[in-house]
Structure formats: structure tokens, C-alpha cells
Nucleic acid binder design. Structure first.
Lengths: 349, 349
DNA sequence: ATGAAAGCGCTAACAA
DNA sequence: TTGTTAGCGCTTTCAT
């Protein structure tokens, strides 16, 4: 017969054990050593608590201690290999520290991002990670007002420590690789390399676009503005833009630098409609790694961003109480077509 | 100059506005209508609160109201297309209801799963979704003790409403499709279809395996036990098992039913080392959809589970206060090789 | 070695 | 229409 009563509190355990609530609190927590509660008492109290299915009410504890035990993270979206890897690492690292992770997705909407930050502040998260921030300054302002330690990941902010991929290096490496694979003359619009996807106003894309331009210029192929198609990250708009581009050019260009895995999804949607020989004449690079995308019918050069490393580094800053406005870079890695990268969680599924 | 003071409380707003804390509380919340606070007062209070950057302390509110405003969900892992889609839908649906989602991954470890449930209970989540439960009965026991409404998704439980994919139908469809694509005789070990991956003791895999067996049997090809290789969901073990299988058979079998997208990752890792012609002689099906996996060098038949539909249905049960031990089925969809499925979030990235 | 009591910030009776 | 008060469950001085 199921008990319909509310959850047990320390008062219940106190009554049952004959000890006082404060003793119970100490016995059930960490402070019993310093309070010099006898081991016998602690044992007895814990036994009873276990029997009653007691568990600490974290709302009450948090209220009293002014620490919730929660760590928040804002990501653009869950349904994305890069960000979901970050979530996985974020969660593991949180647990290692006895914290409970709360991950929310902003859909890259600045307003939504701020609403989420406000919500997380309401729940008194102890730290906040913001990945792919769309409005870092506003986030910093809110966190400052709430006295909340925060840290930017992937896209940096000016008001807090930041950990980002070395986008310039990753993009330069990828661009060079595309050129090496498929030398172009730049003589005709089709004999050029195009960059598609991303938001030219965000830091990561800006860095990548700059590197892309620089490498092309170095190679004596200074890019025209129309070679940069920063149409956002959504598959749907990427599909539209790559189709339009092929229309304009009368076919695929010599090469495409795809600015994220979600963009690649849209691009692939279009490419899949074209004859295979056309695809093979075009060299494709993608700024992000996906094991399946590594084995498509045409080779794809990929840049694997170190999601795990980014998160580790960010937690290190929290652990070491770094408050300086550092901008830490984590190296991405160029992955050759048809190569497997063994993720840190590949023994899980 | 940054204020270093703690966050504003209703007492601060009360002092500043000349109203009482309870009036402030009402004005800032929903109850001011029924309490018949004048609009003017409400306005004034809200203005001051906004100016002070006030936001409700949800720990305190939750403690008082015995409702946290949190909804929990346990998933096996974040870094997985199926589950991360679920997260995305779960979060959107939570927000529609004014709830804050807390998603935690169990890595498919029963002990971890229970620890997470206990943690979520500690934080007083108002509802709990458990996706891919490894120990549903234990979860139900804990939730009962804590008086927590819960619901199983993907893998059902006996003690609470459950929403699951129609695994039998999905697996039967996929198996039939494999047979249609690549008729086998069953005469030699290589001329058979093998199922790889999953956990034979979990409900979903059990259903799929049963359907796989049934379809083969119907077709006059009753499967041997060695045709079922339920080696778990991890890419790494799938890699090992498919390699071992090919070793035993002296090459790829006629067909492979891959039991999840993570398993496909491991399988692909092996297949990628084989000559393309060998792969093309083997028909591959995967129970899960991934847009990139849909465009590999060899065709892959896929079953798309309706993550969004599962979550919608689960929330519907919460909304309608369904308490019966129903087992609701959601139909998966067979997706032909090289087909794009347009996800509900493809306008995002 | 343990207990009593105050208070974290909020809401809901109950008063006025 | 608004104010006063008690108390949600916990931790922490301060007593003893």
C-alpha cells in the first residue's frame, strides 16, 4: 500500500531518531565532523533517513546557503553534433564537481538567449556557460547584476573569460587544403571557391571568413564579395543558397567551404540531386566533423572542433577562479576525408 | 560602476515602492487580479522592479509553493541524433507550458539513471520524463515515494504511462525491405541477414529482434541465434562485432539490420575499410535516421523514429492528467536510401 | 556532543 | 485595496 504522504523532511527524521533537526542536518550532510556529532548518532540517523527514503530538498538548502548546486549552459541548439558533444562533456564535468547541469537552447535568438539567462538566474545557478552567444554584452550585463560567474564558449564575450576554437587557424587550414586538392585559377566564376553559411556578424564566422579571404589572397586569388555567402546556419537556408549559387554559375563551383555541419546538411540536400561526377569535380570542406559526413559519396574535408577541450578549459577557469578577461584558444583539427575520429564517448551509445 | 550588492528581493522593492512585500509579490506575479491590487500600484511596482533588475528567486517560490517549475528528462546520451531531437522537442514543449527543462544523461547505466532521478527529485521537478529507461521499475518506485508524476518514453515502464515507438512495425518493415532488396537463400552463412546492436534485454530491442525473427521465419528463412548480435549500442563494440562477423563469414553477409544510429557509426567504421563493391553487394538497414547516413557510398534503408511525436504525446498525457498505465505507440517511418527528411527544426541551425 | 532559534525569499491566509 | 504574519525545509550561529 503506497504512502500518500509528502516527502520526509529533517523534522521527520529528527522525530524518528530522537535527535534535533540541526543534528540531523549535520549528520546527513558534510558538517558532522566539525560539529563533532558521534559516529553512532550519524549512523543511526543515516539509517533512518535511508529507510524513510529521505533526500535533501535542494530548494530549501539552496535558499539557505545561497548556492543552488546548479550550473547552467546555453547552447544554440541540442540537435547538432557539435553542441550535443559539448552538452555531453559539460554534463560529465558538472557531475565530477557535484553540480547539476541545466542546459537550454536559444535557437540562436538573442531574445530567447536573454530570457534563458534570466530564467537560469532565477533558479540561482552557481555558474553559467554561454556557448554560441548571440548577444554576449547583454548577457554579461545581466550576469553582473545578478553577481553570477559566467564564461563564454565558442563565441567570446568582452565581459567575461572566453574559450573559443582557433577559428582563424581552422579556417586557414581548411582553405589551404581545398586549394591544394583542387587548384583554381579564379578566371571564371565557376573556377573559384565559395564559402557558404554562418553569420558574418558573429565572431567565429567573421574569423573564418577573414582567414578564408586571407588564404585566397595569399594564393593570388583575392576573393570577390560574392564568394562569401553568409546565409546563417539553418539547413533550409543553406539549401536555398547553394541551389541559387549553382543556378547563377550554371553548375557547381570548383570548391565549397561549408561553414558548419548544419549548413552541410542543407548543402548535401541540394548536392544529392546532382550527378555524382559533378560532385567529384568540386572539392568540399566543412567546418565541423561528423562521422557519417566523413563517408559520403564524395570526399569531404572536415575541421573537428574540440568540443570536449573547450568545455574542459572552461571548467578549468571556473575551478581556478580565473576572472581576467582572457580569451583562450583551443585548436581544431583538420580531418582528412574518410577518416574516423574516435570520440571520448564512443564506448557509449 | 558595478553594484556589488546581492540581488534585489521583494523586500527591497517593497521599501522602494512604499508597498508591502505581499503586495509586491502579488503585483509581480499572477495573483494581483484576484487580490484586487490597483493597476496603478501594479504598474508602479513593476516599473521599480524592472529598474532594479529584480527577478523572482525560484528556489524561494518553489519552496513556498511546493512546485519548482522544473520538468526533468533522463536520456541515455546527448550526443545522439535521436535523443538530441527529443531534447529539442522536450525543451520547446516545456517552454510552451512555462516550465524549465532539465535534461540529464544516464549513459545507459542503471545506477547512474537512479542517481539522476534522485537528484531531480531533490530539486523537486514537477514532472519527470524517462527516455530509454534501463530500470523502469526502480524509477517508478522512487517517483512513487516522492509523489512525482512520471512518464516513460521510448522504453516503457510497468508503473507509469508510456509512449514508445512501434518497434515491431518499424523492424518488420525494415526487415521486409532488406529481403525485398536483396533476396537471400539462407543456404550459406554469408547468404543471410544479420541483426547487430542493441540490448536483447531492453524492450525496444526485444521487440525489434522478435519482429526481425518473425519476418525471416515468415519468409521461410528461420534465423539462427548467431544471426542476432545484440552487442549493445556503443560504436566501439559494434565495430568489434561487425569485424568479428566478417572474419567468421569470410566477408560481409548478404544484409545487415543495424539496430541504432550509434551502432551504424561503429559498423561504418569497419565497412569503410572494405572495397566498395563488397559493400554494394550487402544491403544495409538502420533503425534510426540520420541525414548524412542517408547519403553514404552505399544505400542505407532507415527507420525514422518520431522523436517529436513521442514527446508531444508524452506531454499530452501530462496535460490531460492521464494516470492509467497506458502504452501509447507512435509510428516510425521507413525512409528510402538517399532521401531527405525535413526535421521540424531545419529552419534553425 | 547536541539543541534552540533565526532567517534565506517567497506566497497565502487572515486581518484590517 | 492593502498589510501582517506564518511557514515552506534547510543550515548555521550561539548556547548549553
Amino acid at each position: 500500500m503506497r504512502k500518500l504522504t509528502r516527502k520526509a523532511t529533517i523534522y521527520d527524521i529528527a522525530r524518528l531518531s530522537g535527535a534535533s533537526p540541526s543534528t540531523v542536518s549535520a549528520a546527513l550532510g558534510e558538517s558532522w565532523r566539525t560539529r563533532r556529532i558521534s559516529e553512532a548518532t550519524v549512523e543511526a540517523i543515516r539509517r533512518i533517513a535511508a529507510a524513510e527514503g529521505y533526500s535533501t530538498n535542494m530548494q530549501a538548502r539552496g535558499l539557505r546557503k545561497a548556492r543552488s548546486g546548479l550550473v547552467g549552459m546555453v547552447i544554440p541548439l541540442h540537435d547538432n553534433r557539435f553542441f550535443s558533444s559539448m552538452s555531453q562533456s559539460f554534463e560529465a564535468a558538472a557531475r565530477d564537481r557535484g553540480l547539476v547541469p541545466v542546459i537550454a537552447s536559444s535557437m540562436r535568438e538573442p531574445a530567447e538567449e536573454l530570457r534563458i539567462v534570466e530564467t537560469l538566474i532565477s533558479y540561482a545557478v552557481d555558474y553559467l556557460f554561454i556557448a554560441g552567444a548571440t548577444d554576449p554584452d547583454a548577457v554579461t550585463a545581466m550576469c553582473r547584476a545578478a553577481n553570477l560567474r559566467h564564461i563564454f564558449v565558442d563565441l567570446p564575450g568582452k565581459g567575461a573569460p572566453s574559450v573559443v576554437s582557433d577559428n582563424a587557424k581552422g579556417a586557414a587550414d581548411l582553405t589551404r587544403r581545398l586549394l591544394a586538392d583542387r587548384p583554381v585559377t579564379g578566371a571564371t566564376p565557376r573556377d573559384r571557391i565559395y564559402l557558404i553559411g554562418g553569420d558574418a556578424t558573429d565572431y567565429a564566422s567573421a574569423q573564418r571568413i577573414a582567414a578564408f579571404r586571407a588564404v585566397l589572397t595569399e594564393a593570388g586569388l583575392p576573393p570577390l564579395d560574392e564568394q562569401i555567402i553568409a546565409c546563417g546556419y539553418a539547413p533550409r537556408s543553406a539549401l536555398r543558397e547553394i541551389a541559387a549559387l549553382c543556378d547563377r554559375l550554371g553548375g557547381l563551383p570548383a570548391g565549397v567551404f561549408v561553414n558548419s555541419v548544419t549548413v552541410l546538411e542543407g548543402v548535401l540536400n541540394h548536392l544529392s540531386r546532382l550527378p555524382l561526377d559533378d560532385l567529384r569535380a568540386c572539392v568540399i570542406g566543412c567546418y565541423d566533423y561528423d562521422p557519417f559526413a566523413a563517408y559520403l559519396q564524395f570526399p569531404v574535408h572536415m575541421v573537428r572542433q574540440d568540443a570536449h577541450g573547450l568545455i574542459q578549459e572552461a571548467y578549468r577557469m571556473i575551478d581556478e577562479n580565473v576572472l581576467d578577461l582572457v580569451l583562450k584558444m583551443v585548436e581544431p583539427e583538420l580531418i582528412a576525408p574518410r577518416t574516423f575520429y574516435d570520440s571520448p564517448f564512443s564506448d557509449r551509445g
